[in-house]
Structure formats: structure tokens, C-alpha cells
Design a protein around this nucleic acid. Structure first.
Length: 110
DNA sequence: CGGGTGACTCGAC
DNA sequence: CGTCGAGCCACCC
């Protein structure tokens, strides 16, 4: 399986997420020029798990800041654990003050 | 080859 | 303001 540029771009972008910050699938997809490919971003994250460098997939959540992909981690609570370890507050699988910890991928382009 | 699914998002009621 | 449905793209069966 060969990762397309889209996948690589997603991996690279997620890897560039600053510590203590998070982003959304749609933001990544939009940054890549395919705002409708948000679903594919999540799918790419699945492949990211087997990628060589450790990709902070836990820093990627849906647009509402909910840990929608926690079920795909080794443990459904691992994602929350990692996020909380970075200083985030999570209630009911939802990141509090998501707008404050949100990181815009466009920031690296600008 | 064809159909179904999903770590999403937006629009309409 | 809250909930429901449709759309989109790539991968798996």
C-alpha cells in the first residue's frame, strides 16, 4: 500500500501539531485543498498508526472537539489520557475550550 | 466489477 | 436552538 501525497501531507501536518494543541480532520483536509475529504483524513490516520514516526493522532479530533476516533486506539481511554497529559481537559470525550487549544494547519503555510 | 463502510462535515427541518 | 439526512472520497469485501 502506497500512501498518496494526501496521506503523506496528512501525516506531516499532524506531526507538525505543536505540543498541547489539537486540530480537526476538516481543517487538515481543507488545508490540503480537499475540504470534502475529511473522512479520508481519518482513514489516513488509521494508516498513520503503522507509520514509522509516531504520529500524534490523538491530537486530531472532529470539528466539535470530540474524541471520535478514540475507539481506534489501543485503548479507548488512551486518547483521552494523552490529551489530558498534554494539559487538555476532556469531559464526556469532548475537549473543553477546544477553540483555545485548536491549531490551524494554515499556520505553517502562512 | 459492484456494493458497502467510515477516526467527517455541512445543510435543511 | 437541537436533531436528522445527504454528500463526499478512498479502501475493504
Amino acid at each position: 500500500m502506497v500512501q498518496n501525497d494526501f496521506y503523506l501531507a496528512v501525516f506531516d501536518l499532524v506531526r507538525l501539531i505543536p505540543n498541547g494543541k489539537v486540530t480537526s480532520y476538516g481543517a487538515i483536509a481543507r488545508c490540503l485543498g480537499s475540504p470534502q475529504a475529511a473522512r479520508m483524513v481519518g482513514y489516513a490516520m488509521n494508516a498513520a498508526h503503522q507509520h514509522d514516526p509516531e504520529i500524534p493522532a490523538h491530537r486530531v479530533v472532529n470539528r466539535m472537539g470530540m474524541l471520535s476516533g478514540k475507539n481506534h486506539f489501543a485503548h479507548i481511554t488512551l486518547m483521552q489520557e494523552l490529551l489530558e497529559h498534554e494539559g487538555h481537559t476532556i469531559v464526556q470525550d469532548q475537549i473543553q475550550n477546544f477553540d483555545l487549544v485548536f491549531w490551524n494547519p494554515q499556520s505553517i503555510v502562512a
